[in-house]
Simulated assay, not measured.
Amino acid sequence: MTRSDTLARARGLDRPQTAYLVRFPAADGTIVETDLTWAELARDTAWVTERLRGHGLTAGHQALVTASGFEGPWIRPVIDALRSLAVPYAIAEAMGWDHGRTAVFHRELRPHAIIGLSAETLEGLSGTADLREMFRDTPVLLARPAAVRLLRGVGVTASAICFLGPALAFECPERQGAHVNAAEWRVGARDGELFVAAGEGRAATGLAETPLGIRGTVLNGPCACGSADPRVVFS
């Protein structure tokens, strides 16, 4: 049997609805589990695609994604969105020990966008590179909140990307808070601490309001980018 025959047979098999089992810590340290279905993954990808279009990404650009393997439920929609936009991408580990690969990809590919940059990567790079010189000409920097603070501290403009429990928060070029897909999730803050719960699109998950132990506030007014999604501002 040839490889093409095998793939054809595989496409005819029933596929379970679950794409990923998402595990995340709640504020009290307990691990919460919820399913991510293929249909939900497709909707997440469509939402992220629009967010990346808002940053100006288009065919012909190149991107670098820094992520860890266990972050698949949040990063897979980003990768699928890049594919749908015909944006080639490279991947480096988000842990500090792999900062050298980020440096090589940045030097050789000169990516239009870097997505998922971590504070650990920046700390590794800071021993061998001038962060301001390295990143100041990268058109799109989507970094994790701690990395955003480090970059802004050296005068580099960056937008935030963050995992809020099972949800993905994604800052637009206005940089007035990271958007969360209101069709899928309900986010808010109580006593300065963020929580997440299933929205209408995720009702089947049954995720009740879950404090995350992340400090921040939520803005519910319309954003200048045109999105009506709520925006998370990290403390």
Rank of each mutant, 00 (worst) to 15 (best):
A182F: 00
E171C: 05
P166V: 02
E133S: 15
D98E: 09
V156R: 02
R190T: 11
A94Y: 03
L131G: 09
A146C: 06
S118E: 04
L164D: 04
G96L: 03
R144P: 00
P139K: 04
F105T: 02
P145H: 11
L142R: 06
E171I: 02
E108L: 13
W97F: 12
T128W: 13
L122C: 12
H106K: 11
E133V: 13
R136K: 12
F163H: 12
F170C: 00
P139C: 02
E193R: 11
P173C: 01
T138M: 04
R136N: 13
I161F: 05
W185F: 15
G177W: 02
G177A: 03
R101C: 07
I161C: 10
H112P: 10
T102V: 10
G153Q: 08
L109E: 13
D137Y: 08
T102H: 02
R149C: 01
H99C: 04
R136A: 15
Q176R: 08
L122H: 05
R190H: 12
V187M: 06
G116Q: 09
D137E: 14
A94D: 11
R149K: 12
V148S: 05
A103N: 01
A189Y: 11
F163Q: 14
E184Y: 04
A178Q: 00
I161K: 04
E133Q: 15
W185S: 14
E133L: 15
G155C: 05
A92P: 01
A158S: 10
L122N: 11
E171W: 07
G165N: 07
E193S: 11
A103R: 05
L109H: 14
A160N: 01
I114G: 10
W185D: 14
R107I: 05
S118Y: 04
A169G: 06
L117G: 01
L168H: 00
D98M: 03
G165T: 07
P111Y: 10
G177P: 02
V156C: 06
L131R: 06
I161T: 14
G127C: 04
H106Y: 05
H99D: 01
R186V: 15
I91E: 05
L117I: 07
G192L: 06
R186C: 14
R149E: 12
R110T: 13
E174W: 03
R132E: 15
F105M: 06
V156K: 02
G124D: 01
A169Y: 10
R149Y: 04
S159E: 12
E193K: 03
G153K: 11
L122T: 09
R186D: 15
T128V: 15
L122G: 12
G192D: 05
C172V: 00
F163G: 11
G116M: 10
D137R: 13
G124C: 06
F163V: 04
F163D: 08
R101I: 09
A94S: 15
S159G: 13
R152M: 09
R101F: 10
R175E: 08
R175M: 07
D137V: 07
A113V: 08
E108H: 11
E184Q: 15
H99T: 00
S159C: 14
G96M: 02
L122P: 08
W97I: 03
A167E: 00
V154S: 03
V187E: 04
V154T: 05
T121G: 09
L164S: 02
R136P: 08
A129S: 14
G177S: 01
V140M: 09
R190K: 11
R149T: 13
